[in-house]
């Protein structure tokens, strides 16, 4: 049975999750991928926030605390009334954000990152230190996840392009699996080493 995670998510809730747990995420979250992570790192984390970027920073600072970052480059439709709608919104490969993720989690108090393919040691340590988890969405399930995105509440840095902008969305029952928890466990490392052992066994037989 899947556990419900509703934004704002608190630390004890995150600490109670273990790899392999299935969850349904609801609430207001943000998409962010390559350009967005680089931007957060350069403007907010490494240096003093430039005055021009202050409005974006304020939205993210308030919105990301206890919330979720989703690695996604959506297909977005602009409706006749001028509002946006997510058409197809599956996860993109997360490993590209490895250099930034732990710092972003720490700085903004992010409780979960949703993506696909898993991340590595630095993010895993960040999750452990700050009380966060990595959630694996179902790659390719773009229509279903698009349906989970009930509202597009805002878009920031649209000049990065549609896939790369920060989209503030309200999701309902977004299905994910915990594959990296806040206790230093990674399902990806376990599957890799178990399958490696089996591979060697198969290779040793003709």
């Amino acid at each position: 049975m899947a556990e419900r995670l509703t934004v704002p998510i608190n630390e004890p809730q995150i600490r109670s999750l273990k790899v392999g747990d299935q969850v349904l995420v609801s609430g207001v979250i943000f998409t962010a991928r390559d350009a967005a992570h680089k931007y957060m790192m350069e403007n907010f984390i490494k240096g003093e926030c430039p005055e021009a970027e202050r409005p974006v920073y304020d939205v993210l600072k308030q919105g990301l605390a206890g919330s979720v970052i989703y690695h996604c480059g959506p297909v977005v439709k602009k409706r006749d009334d001028g509002k946006y709608e997510f058409v197809a919104a599956g996860p993109t490969t997360s490993i590209r954000e490895e250099p930034y993720q732990a710092d972003v989690i720490g700085h903004f108090g992010v409780r979960a990152v949703i993506g696909k393919g898993g991340m590595r040691d630095r993010t895993l340590r960040g999750c452990q230190e700050h009380g966060a988890v990595y959630l694996h969405a179902i790659g390719g399930a773009a229509t279903l996840i698009g349906e989970c995105c009930k509202d597009v509440l805002g878009v920031y840095k649209l000049d990065f392009g549609v896939p790369e902008a920060f989209w503030q969305i309200r999701v309902e029952d977004f299905p994910c699996v915990v594959t990296m928890d806040s206790h230093g466990q990674s399902l990806h490392e376990k599957v890799r080493s178990d399958s490696e052992a089996k591979l060697q066994e198969l290779l040793s037989t003709a």
Partner: peptide, 10 residues
């Protein structure tokens, strides 16, 4: 038999 499974979940 490698056990990687759907999405690599095992």
């Amino acid at each position: 038999e490698l056990g990687i499974g759907p999405m690599g979940f095992g």
